[in-house]
Simulated scan of single mutants.
Amino acid sequence: MARRTHKGEDDGTTSNNRLELIIEAAARMFDAKGYSATSTQDIANEVGLLKGSIYYYINSKEDLLFRIIEESHEGALRAIATVSHLDVGPLAKSYALVTTHVKVFHDDRVKHSVFFKEFRSLSDNRKEIIRGTGHAYSLFLRSILEEGQQVGQVDKALNPRMATAGIVGMLNSMSFWYQDGGSWGPENIGSQFAEQVVLGLVSEEYLLSSGGRKVLLETIRGELA
């Protein structure tokens, strides 16, 4: 039996595209107005649907919030995949993870902003799903730092768990001050952050054997080129 099509609903050939438009519109509105202050009617109006038709694509407004936050975290998983395949040392991997993180944030800034503003609005079970992704990212970064300590690149006096929390906190802070079109572009921010991280992690012995700060950073950038 054929499914009845409602006004404002796709015939099935463009459903995925329409859902993405709804998600993008919801992200912009949640970021600008807040989750609680945005209604499904607001979102439907933004994409040219009747309010009832939007429920062809979602079951609830929270579904949209979850998809937005989930997509913001998919970038973190892509960053892990990219860096994990690099045939470079731990300090270079740290540098690459930071610059990749900044690029991922820039490319999907609105969804990342919604995550930090509205994560509390998710149901408990969905919060746990999102926390799992964040935990995987932190574990990956911590494993890089621990490897760096084992091979002598990273200062053994550093607590890897605390250093990881500090780096992640610095990167996540972009959600509160970054502006598109500002004087600090993503490439500049990424390289500045990455240099700060590397120089904060490197052991004195490895820094000296590498020829100093400038040479170390040039070597790392060369490895990643």
Rank of each mutant, 00 (worst) to 15 (best):
E118L: 10
F119R: 11
H135I: 06
V154N: 02
E62D: 15
D155R: 09
E118A: 13
A165Y: 00
K93F: 02
G75T: 08
R161D: 13
G132W: 00
V114R: 05
I129W: 02
K117E: 03
T99A: 04
H85E: 14
F119E: 04
L145H: 05
K127I: 07
L139V: 12
D87I: 01
D87W: 00
V168L: 14
A157N: 05
F115Q: 02
Y56P: 07
F119K: 04
S84W: 00
A136E: 13
T133I: 11
D124Q: 12
I144G: 00
A79R: 05
S53M: 15
I144N: 03
F116Y: 14
I144T: 02
L91Q: 01
G134D: 03
L49H: 12
K93M: 11
L145V: 09
N45I: 03
F115G: 00
I69A: 06
S143L: 05
V154S: 04
P160E: 13
I68K: 06
L50V: 14
R131F: 10
I68P: 01
A76N: 09
A96W: 01
R109H: 10
F66Q: 03
E46I: 09
V83P: 06
V88T: 12
A79D: 11
S121P: 00
V102M: 08
I54G: 02
H112S: 11
L50Y: 15
G169K: 01
E74H: 08
K61P: 11
L122G: 10
L50D: 15
S53H: 13
V154Q: 02
A81W: 08
V47M: 11
L50E: 15
Q150V: 07
L141D: 01
H85V: 05
Q149L: 08
S138M: 13
H135L: 09
A163N: 10
K111Y: 02
P160L: 02
P160H: 05
I54V: 15
L141H: 03
L86C: 06
V110T: 15
G166H: 03
I54P: 03
P90I: 01
A81G: 09
P160Y: 06
L77A: 08
R109Y: 11
K156Q: 14
E74N: 10
T99R: 10
F115L: 13
V83R: 02
T99E: 11
F119I: 04
R126F: 03
S138L: 03
E70P: 00
L77C: 01
S143G: 12
F105Y: 13
R67M: 08
K156Y: 07
Q150I: 09
H135K: 11
P90A: 05
R131S: 08
S94W: 00
A76S: 10
F115N: 09
L97S: 06
S94G: 15
L139W: 04
E147A: 10
T133H: 05
I167K: 04
K103W: 04
Y56D: 13
V151T: 13
G89L: 06
Y57C: 01
Y57Q: 12
F140D: 09
K127G: 08
L86D: 02
G75A: 07
S138C: 10
G48H: 14
G148E: 06
I130K: 05
R67K: 12
A92H: 01
V102L: 07
G132S: 10
D63T: 11
